[in-house]
Design a binder for these strands. Structure first.
Lengths: 199, 199
DNA sequence: TAATTTACCTAACGATGTTAGCAAAGATAG
DNA sequence: CTATCTTTGCTAACATCGTTAGGTAAATTA
């Protein structure tokens, strides 16, 4: 019978609706002002309904965080098919990571705990760290014909990721005194170039 | 007359006591659980007394953040006197930055908004960014005899800072899958070496 | 039609940041 | 010494937050 299916569909709709509405609220007003009551208002239901679909607020943040990682991963996966040359691929990954961060700052802040109380509190982190794996694969591709120990390769992966994440964080949290966004991007491009040339 | 002075002294004592107690609470229980009421409890006064000394909670966080920057700056200033050679100085600054972050994670998290709602919300940032200036000075010292444009030097400053801040953030937020702290330090040392050799 | 499950809401609890308003103690002036 | 005024500190409240208990009415099943 279709009734059960309809109910399941409705329940899923409600769930995705909550997530969508929460994300929109965050885009409009920032993470700090997101509240369960505002979500309830926006979906036009009372507060406890939200708790039929999520255990607590953190579960909502966790799910949104996963959405962020999935969104990023999709682009990286595309790059993997599009750029067989590992050097080009690494450049594309860096570009994608940068663009992702500044086109979806809400997601990036949530995923890496910038300027907000931590979401998954470490649950996600190691499991879901797509970027580390994707740049790791590319760097290994570049480095595999040269003499380079496993440790050295691992170090390079973290160094590469760090400079990207660090620069994004500094710019996003307004710690940088460079206002011009193209200028900031140039810092990244320069650093990525220097890094790749020295692999 | 000494009465006024005594009062001023008492008022200052109260103020520093609030800050000290807040910092201790944070060290014990983390930023997320710091509350005005807990501070009031700890100083054995009622809640509104706190508002005689600070405009709001954010003002307390701001002041603690400044303490953090001052604490870091003191070490950097020592390095400046201790290491006349800019290369050694830069290495010492990096080491100091790293040590500061992991000896005082509460301060570092507050200063750069890691895993917590932002404090000064950008007020401090550009004014008080001692680290940027200190490594900038050292890098300029290393680079000044080579052909290097102002832009290039500026880029290098941010690249250097980024890799340090990025790596610290990744480790501190448990995004890294390297557990061993000496191993993480080694990643930093390696990256710093590579960076300096390529200046 | 009666029983049961589901969907949803109102109202509350405890905790938060913040503030109004009052009481008591201290300082000052006559 | 007394009367005024300022300072100091408190109680009690407000609005907001996450979360949950308990009830009502509708939808489903028997």
């Amino acid at each position: 019978m279709g009734i059960l299916e309809r109910k399941i569909r409705q329940k899923e709709n409600m769930r995705t609706n909550i997530l969508a509405v929460a994300l929109q609220l965050v885009k409009d007003e920032g993470w700090q002002s997101l509240s369960i009551r505002k979500i309830a208002d926006a979906i036009e239901y009372s507060v406890p309904v939200i708790y039929d679909h999520f255990e607590n607020k953190e579960a909502i943040l966790f799910e949104l965080s996963m959405d962020g990682f999935r969104l990023l991963e999709r682009t990286l996966e595309k790059n993997k098919r599009k750029y067989p040359d590992p050097q080009e691929r690494l450049r594309a990954h860096a570009e994608a990571y940068w663009n992702f961060a500044f086109k979806n700052p809400e997601y990036y802040q949530l995923m890496y705990g910038l300027g907000m109380t931590c979401s998954g509190a470490g649950k996600i982190k190691t499991e879901f760290n797509c970027f580390r794996d994707y740049i790791g694969e590319a760097i290994e591709g570049i480095v595999k014909n040269k003499k380079s120990s496993d440790d050295e390769t691992c170090f390079k992966i973290y160094a590469f990721w760090s400079v990207l994440h660090g620069l994004i964080s500094i710019v996003m949290m307004r710690c940088s005194d460079i206002d011009d966004s193209t200028m900031n991007k140039k810092v990244m491009d320069d650093t990525v170039n220097a890094f790749i040339n020295n692999l």
